[in-house]
Simulated assay, not measured.
Amino acid sequence: MNDQRAKEMGKIIAKCWADDAFKQKLLADPVATLTAEGVAVPAGVTVKAVEDTAQTLNLVIPASPTELSDEQLDVVAGGGFCFATFPCR
């Protein structure tokens, strides 16, 4: 998520916390609510708004990058290591 999108979403979340009616609108129709708030939703994109509760924790798994470098693959596969006295690789 880029910085601008993070700021937009931060404002939306803050508004949800302050205004329960707004939160209910966002949960019921996220695309229309975001659009009304000036947040661009690209055509063909589905938006799902969900709420964490004391009994429910929603885990969002970001989309996979299209291509990982060899270094990134090594770290993900557990191939990276670091010692305080040696350079990390």
Rank of each mutant, 00 (worst) to 15 (best):
A84H: 09
P30K: 01
E8C: 09
I13C: 03
K23N: 01
G38T: 03
F81W: 10
T56K: 15
C88A: 14
K48P: 03
Q4N: 12
V41D: 04
L73N: 03
V76R: 06
R89H: 12
A21N: 11
M9S: 03
K11I: 02
A28V: 05
V45Q: 10
A49C: 12
F22Q: 06
G79I: 02
D29R: 12
A18H: 06
T66H: 08
E51I: 04
Q24I: 01
P65W: 00
S64Y: 08
V76A: 13
G79M: 05
G44P: 04
T35E: 11
F86N: 13
P42G: 01
L73Y: 03
A84K: 15
D20C: 01
Q72F: 00
P87D: 07
S69H: 00
G80A: 15
M1R: 08
T35Q: 11
E71S: 00
W17E: 14
T66P: 04
G80T: 05
E71G: 00
A54Q: 01
T53S: 15
Q24G: 00
N2R: 09
M1L: 12
A21E: 09
F83L: 13
A6S: 06
D74I: 03
A18V: 02
A84I: 14
D3G: 14
V50D: 07
L34Q: 06
A77M: 09
D29Y: 12
K11E: 12
K23Y: 00
G38A: 04
Q24W: 01
I61T: 09
D70L: 02
V76M: 12
K7M: 13
Q4T: 11
C82N: 13
K25Q: 15
L59N: 08
G38S: 02
E8S: 10
P62D: 14
R89L: 10
K7Q: 15
L26K: 07
V47N: 13
D3N: 11
G79C: 09
Q55H: 05
R5A: 05
A21D: 13
F81M: 14
A6Y: 10
F83N: 14
Q72N: 03
D70A: 09
G79A: 08
P87Y: 05
A54T: 13
D19G: 10
F81V: 04
D52C: 05
Q4D: 07
A43C: 00
A6P: 01
T53V: 01
C16R: 09
V76N: 05
Q24E: 13
I12M: 13
G10T: 10
D20A: 15
A14H: 02
T66F: 08
C88N: 08
A43E: 05
G80S: 12
A54I: 05
